[in-house]
Design a protein around this nucleic acid. Structure first.
Lengths: 345, 345
DNA sequence: TAGGGCTATGTTACCGGTCACATCGGAGAA
DNA sequence: TTCTCCGATGTGACCGGTAACATAGCCCTA
């Protein structure tokens, strides 16, 4: 009763299985009358074609695999959504693997499982991934189109998509400088994330451009990107540089955490201390004050990744790996105040 | 060169393909020496077994399908992450379909595509889904284990997982009442979402329990769950009931939007007006004031959904659809103030 | 020492589609 | 009228695994 096959339908419609195949694939050269008969049989038997059998036979799975650090993180969720939408437009399905914190070799396991599934493309969004010797990822790249998202791994043959973190960091810091800030602290994400390092580089570039001497005590790294870390980092920062007038936090959550600390110390934002974030998560526009931040277009990142794979699959020739960097624009809101010329807090 | 099959490996190792199958599946009764030989051939040919062929032959895909409204929404992203983690634990892979706003029949298309893929279970998290006559979803339920998340559709044979929205709404409102609030407004989500209606019911229950008369002008529905809507709803609410002392917003974003409006009107939170939200999104704990809210355990919802499918698949007998309601606890923070006895703002 | 039973391995069919090619019948051309 | 060609349909192999059964040694026991 359950699981009619193409041959069951054929028998019922009194045609060959091949004719059924023609009908369900919309091929020409089938009489209207025959088609009708077949379709009726399909309905009566509640026949649903098997993508599995089709894949085996046609050697196409129409499936893309995506491995991410954690889908529940807004950042990756957006990328997944973007990739999914774009993939779907092109007739692909998406299978996802979300790597739980803690398990070491999970990326590799996932990768292998996806290869077994014969995905036709791979999106790897695992920022901290380091390449081992003889890494299975290299194998994967050799087999199927692969896009590395937000990774600093340099893998020949793979496409790379990333945010221009350095420029983003530069703009954020540069904006603070333009508002006459001179003593600018920064709260960074974990420095084993390439994005954190890049943003820090941007911060330093901007200070250098402005002729402001680098000061190590103004750089406060965190172990994660969360609120609590921002809170504590701000405390350390205030301890080591009580007179700073601005903070560039590498994520909105870090920024919000920092703001909480500032408030707790009786400092007003932005009147006493200005704050710039990074991400532009949905709440950033409604917190008090609305957060000035650098917007990460993660959805576009996901879309682009899927599009690259689609294009590559379509052209089917092996191109060299391309490199795409999406601009992360500064969104100016209300958490930065202009400092009166020369005044130091 | 690319795509060695089990027979290629067999030839190379000078055994039958069946022996290769035994080795890669870790079967007993293979000599160490033979196994070694096979494994070497596997390595040399870079053989990766085809899950597609395996699925066709074994009639198992080890795949779960999940259809959601929008993965980039924190709410669903959490559920996806939870489901994914649990599925993985049980050896399942997850394919996801995220329904873009606007396209009407997408759920059905996705459903059909997933049936074609022969998913072994289906998680449908599409709150506003309405059942059409002769709905394909009913077919799906008849074929494979299905879990409906946050839906009020009553489908025999399907399992249901949901948050106890009514109780959540009741607790939130009841808490305000306990703090001596009497004039309590509510900002609801779109009322075609079952969760919005349930929370509203909870709100009404609580008022009734306290002997407070219902007042239609205190209920302000929104077209979505976002900040901007919260802002505007609060304005309408203040216009129609300027003396209210508390607001129960059905999402944290609505609550934050409302707080923004209150601030703009010079009203302090919680001193002048208390606010309770719903969701407990990550920022809720760090905004100013920290938001008192009802926590939705979405991750657990996803986990439970996946677990139910796993159990059902394992027992393989058709149980009646079960119904699971997860408690959404009130998280008390700082956005609610106690009203002095009898005082009315 | 023959037969039973176990282990290691091979053989063949099958899962449910697609593909390449064969076949058949009728319309149009010579 | 006969030949040709083409549209409609059928046949059998194949995709890459798994399952069930067959077979060949080997050890042990009676």
């Amino acid at each position: 009763m359950k699981g009619a096959t193409i041959r069951d339908v054929a028998r019922r419609a009194r045609v060959s299985h091949q004719t059924v195949s023609r009908v369900i694939n919309g091929h020409e050269s089938v009489t209207d009358e025959t088609r009708e008969r077949v379709l009726r049989a399909v309905r009566e038997l509640e026949y649903v074609p098997s993508a599995v059998a089709r894949s085996l036979s046609s050697q196409r799975t129409h499936t893309l695999g995506m491995v991410t650090t954690d889908v529940s993180d807004h950042f990756f969720a957006e990328a997944v959504a973007g990739a999914e939408a774009e993939a779907r437009k092109r007739g692909y399905f998406m299978i996802i693997g979300s790597i739980e914190e803690g398990s070491e070799d999970d990326e590799r396991t996932y990768l292998h499982l996806m290869l077994e599934r014969r995905v036709e493309g791979l999106i790897v969004a695992v920022p901290r991934l380091r390449l081992a010797e003889d890494d299975p990822l290299a194998d994967a790249v050799a087999r199927i189109p692969t896009v590395l998202v937000a990774s600093d791994i340099d893998l020949a043959g793979a496409d790379h998509v990333d945010i221009d973190n350095r420029r983003g960091g530069h703009e954020a810091t540069g904006y603070l400088v333009a508002q006459n800030h001179r003593l600018i602290g920064t709260i960074t994400g974990p420095l084993d994330w390439p994005s954190a390092r890049a943003r820090l580089d941007g911060y330093r570039d901007a200070l250098k451009d402005a002729g402001i001497a680098a000061d190590r005590t103004l750089v406060e790294p965190c172990v994660d990107w969360g609120l609590e870390s921002g809170r504590r980092a701000a405390e350390r920062l205030l301890a080591s540089a009580p007179k700073l007038s601005a903070i560039f936090a590498q994520s909105d959550l870090l920024a919000l955490g920092a703001i909480a600390t500032l408030r707790a110390r009786g400092l007003r934002v932005p009147d006493d201390v200005s704050v710039v974030g990074f991400d532009d998560i949905p709440v950033s526009s409604v917190v008090d004050p609305p957060l000035t931040t650098v917007r990460q277009p993660m959805r576009e990142v996901g879309e682009l990744a899927a599009r690259l794979i689609g294009d590559r699959a379509a052209s089917s020739r092996k191109t060299k790996g391309s490199r795409h960097t999406l601009r992360a624009p500064l969104i100016i809101r209300g958490s930065v105040a202009r400092l009166d010329g020369g005044r130091i807090r």
